[in-house]
């Protein structure tokens, strides 16, 4: 965007894909003109619409600082967080806003993420100790290397941008998907955890890591630099080793 055009921008048009199930059978586009300023985020522009122009517009938000993962949406066709995306990057507009791709739309920019929530329960995203450990035993000790193995994957905020980026999830919503697989890996890769055997079934399934074709767009759109593609790739190796081990020693296979 050349400087003069940026300085000249006084307003910007938002084109929002609206869906109100009680009014329309299929989503429709609606335009809103909002005042432009250099420091205005897409989320603030939507809040302006809701407060000043049209109170019926629905969207999710909470923290305004890329921590809560609520305001993910398609912004000019890319999955992004509305709070982290500034209108100055999108001049001269119009800016097209849609609900996150590949998810059922509940209303306007709000998706139905119940499939993800159900998946969260299945992958057991919490530390499962190897054996019961009393508080008196003190803290777990981890080397910097052991921390490095899982720390990047612990930054996930469940914003689902990676799902909107994943063509395989788009083709087959049964796919466990990048976010859940990265989170699963975060616990499997933790030296304090002993729950790997319980999680491997989810990894080994066709809808586990094996639906991934290593496109890598998930890692590109991740606002927290989690790199789910790398987590999935590591687990393809883990799953292949697990497969061969199971083949060679079906009963006595170590966990």
């Amino acid at each position: 965007m050349p400087e003069p055009a940026r300085a000249a921008a006084r307003s910007i048009t938002l084109e929002v894909l609206r869906y109100r199930p009680e009014i329309e059978a299929a989503p429709v586009w609606q335009s809103y003109v909002v005042p432009f300023s250099e420091d205005l985020s897409v989320l603030q522009a939507l809040q302006h619409v809701k407060d000043e122009l049209d109170g019926s517009l629905s969207f999710r938000w909470s923290c305004r600082m890329a921590i809560c993962g609520s305001c993910g949406m398609m912004i000019d066709g890319r999955p992004r967080l509305a709070c982290q995306t500034f209108l100055r990057e999108l001049l001269p507009g119009p800016v097209r806003l849609e609900a996150l791709a590949h998810w059922p739309i509940q209303r306007d920019l709000v998706i139905d993420a119940s499939g993800f929530i159900a998946g969260l329960e299945r992958i057991k995203p919490y530390l499962i100790p190897r054996q019961p450990r009393p508080l008196a035993a003190g803290e777990y000790r981890q080397s910097p290397h052991e921390l490095e193995l899982f720390e990047p994957y612990s930054a996930c905020i469940n914003c689902l941008l990676c799902y909107a980026a994943c063509p395989q999830f788009g083709l087959d919503p049964g796919f466990t998907g990048p976010g859940l697989l990265a989170l699963l890996h975060r616990y499997n890769a933790d030296s304090r955890d002993g729950g790997r055997a319980q999680r491997m079934a989810a990894v080994n399934a066709e809808h586990g890591v094996w639906s991934c074709t290593a496109v890598g767009y998930c890692s590109e759109v991740c606002p927290k630099a989690v790199d789910p593609a790398h987590a999935v790739n590591q687990n393809k190796v883990n799953s292949a080793i697990d497969y061969l081990r199971h083949l060679l020693a079906p009963r006595g296979a170590p966990p």
């Binding site: 919503p173 079934a201 080994n204 399934a205 809808h207 586990g208 094996w210 799953s239 497969y243």
Partner: peptide, 14 residues
């Protein structure tokens, strides 16, 4: 995302 209580079948993809 598939649901169900029994663990999903192992894929032969490896």
């Amino acid at each position: 995302m598939s649901s169900g209580t029994s663990p999903p079948a192992r894929s032969h993809a490896p």
